[in-house]
Design a protein around this nucleic acid. Structure first.
Length: 743
RNA sequence: GGGCGAUUAGCUCAGUUGGUUAGAGCGUUACAUUGACAUUGUAAAGGUCACAGGUUCGAGUCCUGUAUCGCCCACCA
């Protein structure tokens, strides 16, 4: 017997060695499997693209969960003979990576982005990201993931850049991407716009002031943001509100509102609630999304009064150049002194903050790039992007697990506004838009042609003007990171090239993100894939939950409750960690991570080790190549296991990993070990009837081998190690990794 | 304000299309154990499946309502 079996199972000694054998074999790559005759070239495909982790730091237990699930299904499908690929990659995560880097830079050297030229700063962030990326790729190997490393991708590498530029151009040419001056979410801390879903609301107490603009103004209004009122151009009331009916349509001139003259028109708008506050809303078109909508309906002028640094850009020395919070106090005390302040209350208010920087969002009008989600698209038969996102899920072409997230998905789409895709940060895909310089000296012979100079061009590289010597200057903004993420299922397969990979593996079979990025990412992949490829990006979305600590708290730096996957692996082994991430956890459920549970599965690993030791030690005079006649009882045992294997296959096919793994665990421990092996002991003794002994030897051997195969997707390392130790027959593969699935 | 989910053993959670006696891990108790098992086995205690109605031959599972907790979306100016 192999000496290894005499000692308890040692995952630390085993795992790295096994992973190297797998990687060296090349079998993670389906092309190699086909070349070596393991997989049939015409076999159905099974493909997953890994949700790319952000290169902001290191992998955490949430990633371990993702890898455990995906690797389980990938190994299962590979063993079943499908042409299986799992593509690894990482995400540059633009704003997340830049803000993380800037924080560290500030801490270490006190420097900021303004201390470096753009190109140099980009390089510094990229190096930071690539260092993290390197660590993460090592971590993925520790997790045992059977990723096809030959196809590794990065959202910011050359091929993905080409995909981004191609997608941008196509959407621009069809009028889906436009540049517009709109009220957007400005993060004064990060000095960039952010999308609606990057906002986090925090509840705070705020003062709610009720006042009149002037003594002559007939309608009092209420606000928490008195400083924005210097930008008001209207007061809106509900059209049914009898109190204010007589004033609607009139315009009032206010000569002096804390040093600022105002022109206020009274308008009626359905969106105003008569019961809230005074029933009248001071409309500030420049600094509120809702007010901007009202202003658009009533053709009101927009006056910007707050700049990008959240400072006042209007008024006299009392407020000009002051921070919004300071200006607010000045204006409130002015109102008080003038006797205009009628009421002052304390209310609870939700304040918008930026997800990545924590900065308080300042709505500002700005010229930005947007994706129009409501435009009828000619090439799609007049459908809108919203419809393209909605339809495949509604028609079940895409299956979301658990089901109830479909409702949430639809709800989100129905309320969706145009997507602001431009960011004023450095790290990311630069917008591939080039502007013609204003000065324009015609080339010889083209004196008459300079009217034809293209003012705006979408181009991957710097364009040259045909008719004059002017330069093209690239837009300084970068793209929202989710723009490149949206292309992920096909940019990884070579798009815009019409590659064999793209034809073979798209649409992908499964996508396994956390439910918290259903909107950010899943919806956008559907949008991009439907628009650019005219096809779904994936057939099934299996949403997983959040891994929390054993008490249900989120892991966070401030709570200091972080657990590194490596620590757990070092202590108890990857297989145990993986099992603990799978058993008993349905889709969409959060996990309270408990080391006790991992420990239970490390015991199970050892149990399996000893089961094998027992079986192997009783096979010394057994020839695995020979066919032995089995007793009826033993045939029944094999039949029982066959039923289990069938059940497990079904559960795997329907993505019920949590049941498959648990049933298998239970069978191996409490049926195979506690019953079958226990009862075999007397039959195995040398003095027993030889025919009966052979029958049980053969039965134990067969069951063990099938168990190793069934368990491989969940506990790949120990099963592979045991596969190399047990006696095998000539038709068996060297590596369990590519052994066929029991049917 | 709108929506979604959860409530099952001391703890953390499963429970598949409604079907016998509701399960697992950890914890607790007793016994066994030089055992294939330093990580074992056998058994026990522990549940009015949140509560109240309803459908059904039969409900942890389906329906209605209530309570509590959690999450998502909106953002009242």
């Amino acid at each position: 017997m192999n000496d290894k079996l005499l000692k308890p199972y040692n995952p630390n000694e085993t795992e790295a060695r096994i992973y190297k054998r797998w990687e060296d074999s090349g079998y993670f790559n389906p092309d190699v499997c086909i070349a070596k005759g393991i997989t049939k070239p015409d076999a159905p495909h099974f493909s997953i693209v890994l949700p790319p982790p952000n290169v902001t730091g290191r992998l955490h237990l949430g990633h371990a969960l993702e890898h455990s699930l995906q690797d389980a299904v990938v190994r299962f499908e590979r063993m079943r003979g499908k042409r299986t690929v799992w593509i690894p990659g990482t995400d540059h995560a633009a704003i997340a990576t830049q803000s993380r880097f800037e924080k560290e830079l500030q801490k270490e050297s006190g420097k900021s982005r303004h201390d470096f030229p753009r190109e140099e700063f980009f390089k510094m962030i990229n190096e930071f990201g690539l260092k993290n990326q390197k660590d993460m790729l090592i971590q993925m190997r520790l997790l045992g993931s059977s990723l096809d490393w030959s196809r590794e991708a990065f959202t910011l590498d050359y091929k993905r850049s080409m995909a981004v530029k191609t997608a941008f151009k196509k959407m621009y040419d069809e009028g889906l991407i436009y540049r517009g001056n709109r009220v957007i979410n400005w993060d004064p801390k990060g000095q960039t716009t952010i999308a609606d879903d990057e906002i986090i609301y925090e509840e705070r107490e705020a003062k709610f002031y009720t006042f009149k603009y002037s003594k002559d103004f007939p309608i009092p209004i209420s606000t928490t943001r008195a400083e924005t009122k210097v930008g008001d151009t209207a007061v809106a009331v509900n059209p049914k509100d009898a109190r204010y009916k007589e004033y609607v349509g009139k315009t009032y001139l206010i000569k002096d509102f804390c040093g600022v003259p105002l022109t206020i028109k009274v308008i009626a708008d359905e969106s105003v609630e008569a019961d809230f506050g005074t029933g009248a809303l001071g409309v500030t078109p420049a600094h509120s999304q809702i007010d901007a909508d009202i202003a658009a309906r009533h053709n009101l002028p927009t006056v910007q009064v707050i700049n990008e640094y959240a400072k006042m850009m209007i008024g006299d020395e009392r407020i000009l150049g002051k921070k919004t919070t300071e200006a607010r106090e000045v204006i409130v005390s002015w109102l008080r002194n003038q006797g205009l302040l009628e009421k002052e209350e304390t209310i609870k208010q939700n304040i918008s903050t930026a997800e990545r920087t924590g900065g308080i969002i300042e709505p500002l009008p700005k010229l930005q790039w947007f994706i129009d989600v409501n435009k009828a698209i000619p090439s799609k038969g007049g459908k809108t992007l919203k419809e393209l996102m909605r339809e495949p899920v509604a028609s079940k072409k895409i299956n979301i697990l658990p089901d109830h997230f479909e409702k949430i998905y639809f709800n989100w789409i129905d309320n969706l506004r145009d997507w602001c895709i431009s960011r004023q940060i450095i790290y990311g895909h630069r917008i591939p838009v080039w502007y013609h310089e204003l000065k324009c000296i015609p080339k010889q012979g083209h004196e008459q042609d300079i009217v034809k100079c293209e003012q705006i061009l979408i181009s991957a590289d710097k364009p040259k003007c045909e008719f004059c010597d002017a330069q093209y200057i690239q837009d300084s903004d970068t793209l929202d990171t989710w723009f490149s993420s949206g292309l992920w299922t096909f940019s990884t397969l070579g798009w815009p090239g019409q590659t064999t990979d793209l034809k073979t593996y798209h649409p992908t079979s499964l996508m396994n993100p956390g439910y918290e990025i259903l909107f950010f990412w899943v919806a956008r992949m559907v949008m991009m894939s439907e628009y650019l490829l005219g096809d779904i990006p994936f057939k099934t979305v299996y949403l997983h939950g959040i891994v929390r600590d054993s008490k249900g708290k989120k892991f966070s730096k401030s709570a200091n409750n972080g657990i590194e996957p490596e620590e757990v692996i070092k202590q108890l082994g990857t297989d145990a960690l993986r099992m603990s991430m799978i058993v008993g956890i349905g889709p969409g459920n959060d996990i309270n991570f408990d080391l006790q549970k991992v420990k239970a599965y490390s015991k199970f690993a050892n149990k399996l080790w000893n089961i094998t030791r027992f079986v192997v030690s009783n096979l010394e005079d057994f020839d695995p190549n020979k066919k032995y006649k089995l007793t009826a009882a033993d045939t029944a045992l094999l039949e029982e296991q066959k039923n289990l294997a069938k059940k497990i296959s079904e559960d795997m096919e329907t993505y019920k990993f949590y049941l498959a793994a648990e049933n298998l665990y239970h069978y191996i421990w409490h049926t195979f070990a506690d019953k079958i092996i226990e009862e075999s002991k007397t039959r195995l003794s040398r003095s027993a009837d030889n025919k009966d002994r052979e029958s049980i030897q053969s039965t134990l051997y067969t069951i063990l081998k099938i168990n190793l195969r069934l368990l491989h997707p969940f506990m790949p390392f120990i099963t592979e190690e045991l596969w190399s130790i047990i006696p095998r027959v000539s038709t068996d593969n060297d590596l369990l990794l590519v052994e066929s699935w029991p049917n």
